[in-house]
Design a protein around this nucleic acid. Structure first.
Length: 246
DNA sequence: AGCACA
């Protein structure tokens, strides 16, 4: 499977994130590289379509930059995110997504099993782990190359049991909900046309409160989604933006 | 490539 042999986890581990973004290449909302908070916000927006997010962790230390953890309240949400967003071009670099190797503190806290760690202990654990792995590697000379012949391609879509929500893969078309019924096409145009790749807004006459917005491609649509998700046309109407179903 | 929780 794509995530190697790491067992499912509520938290996904993302690497290959773009570490250097020139600020003026993107809308101000998307400035990362210098602003960790913005990176976290973008990841939060991008992944919240898969489920409730408890925390997003990203650090800028030399060892940890370019990586992030997104903690979901449910494992199936994480599974969908790992599958659907695998290699998604985020700031021009394909995200590499796996399950996190360990339980996030925020999850442990929710479960009540959180114990504050000591720095020393952590180092020891790491050393021990490394040694264990080295031993394993020596003992089990892997039989032959063809093990799990999966790379890149879409995984055979096994449905994830009682997943609370459908996983919607990226799409150049956005689906907008929770609009005030007074919303006009022009209003939505003014909001969305500021983002590159914008094509058109389609209001559904028969169903007030929803709309579709077309972009040239899914990268551009996702940028607009990140920026405008939750945007309030009225205080009671935070826009809910998801990728349209194909 | 790199698995943390300031």
């Amino acid at each position: 499977m794509l995530s190697g042999d790491i067992p499912p986890n509520q938290t996904i581990y993302i690497k290959n994130l773009n570490e250097k973004i020139k600020k003026d290449e993107y809308n101000v909302i998307f400035c990362i590289g210098f602003n960790l908070a913005e990176l976290k916000r973008s990841l939060y927006c991008l992944f919240s379509q898969y489920g409730r997010i408890l925390d997003v962790v990203a650090l800028k230390t030399p060892k940890l930059r370019g990586q992030a953890w997104v903690c979901f309240s449910e494992v199936p949400a994480a599974s969908n995110a790992v599958r659907q967003m695998q290699n998604f071009p985020f700031y021009d670099k394909p995200m590499r997504i796996q399950y996190a190797k360990t339980k996030s503190d925020c999850i442990a806290k929710e479960e009540g099993s959180y114990v504050p760690r000591e720095k020393k202990k952590k180092q020891e654990e790491k050393a021990a782990e490394r040694k264990r792995r080295a031993d394993e590697a020596q003992q089990s000379a892997v039989p032959n190359g063809t093990h799990g012949a999966s790379n890149g391609g879409p995984t055979p879509s096994f449905r994830q049991g009682p997943s609370t929500q459908e996983a919607v893969p990226p799409n150049n078309i956005l689906f907008i909900e929770n609009l005030p019924h007074e919303t006009t096409g022009r209003m939505l145009e003014m909001l969305f046309e500021q983002y590159p790749g914008f094509k058109e807004v389609r209001l559904i006459e028969a169903k007030p409160g929803i709309a579709f917005v077309d972009f040239d491609d899914e990268v551009q649509s996702s940028m607009a989604m990140q920026a405008l998700n939750g945007f309030k046309i009225t205080p009671q109407n935070p826009m809910i933006i998801t990728f349209a179903k194909k």
